[in-house]
Simulated assay, not measured.
Amino acid sequence: MPKDFSDVTGLPDDLGIGDDLARAEQHLTVRVESRRYGKPMTIVGGFDDGTVDLKDLASTLKRRLATGGTVEKDSRTIELQGDHADRLPDVLRDEGFQVA
């Protein structure tokens, strides 16, 4: 059975190294905005292209931060309820991203 090889690394896709490289090359930003009734919303942006499954990442972030949130597909951002600017960069680094 022939294996599929990554265009980026030249290694087999089943190793998942291409996904790790895609995450490491993205420089994400974290900001907090005030929404309706003064409630804080933490916004994660800076996703370059479709290499990262935003829905899966949002689920992981919501679970690790014990909060609600959503994915804005038009702007390619993740919105999390509450002010998580202090904890979120560390969680994103644990997931393999660079945070500005």
Rank of each mutant, 00 (worst) to 15 (best):
M1E: 13
P2T: 11
P2K: 08
S6A: 13
D7K: 14
D7V: 13
D7N: 12
G10W: 06
L11A: 00
D14W: 12
L15E: 10
L15K: 06
G16Q: 06
G18F: 01
D19T: 14
D20E: 10
D20I: 14
A22V: 13
A24Q: 10
Q26N: 01
Q26K: 10
H27R: 15
L28N: 10
L28G: 10
T29N: 13
T29V: 07
V30H: 10
E33V: 12
R36M: 07
R36W: 02
G38C: 08
G38S: 11
K39W: 06
P40L: 04
V44S: 01
G46A: 12
F47R: 04
F47Y: 03
D49G: 15
G50Y: 14
G50P: 09
T51S: 15
V52P: 05
L54K: 09
K55I: 12
D56W: 00
D56K: 15
A58K: 10
T60A: 14
R64N: 11
R64D: 14
R64P: 00
L65S: 07
G69W: 08
T70F: 00
E72Y: 00
D74W: 06
S75H: 08
E79I: 07
L80W: 00
L80M: 03
Q81V: 02
H84N: 01
H84A: 01
A85Q: 03
A85K: 02
D86A: 04
R87C: 07
R87E: 01
P89T: 03
D90Q: 08
D90T: 09
V91E: 01
V91A: 05
V91I: 11
D94I: 05
G96P: 04
Q98E: 12
Q98W: 02
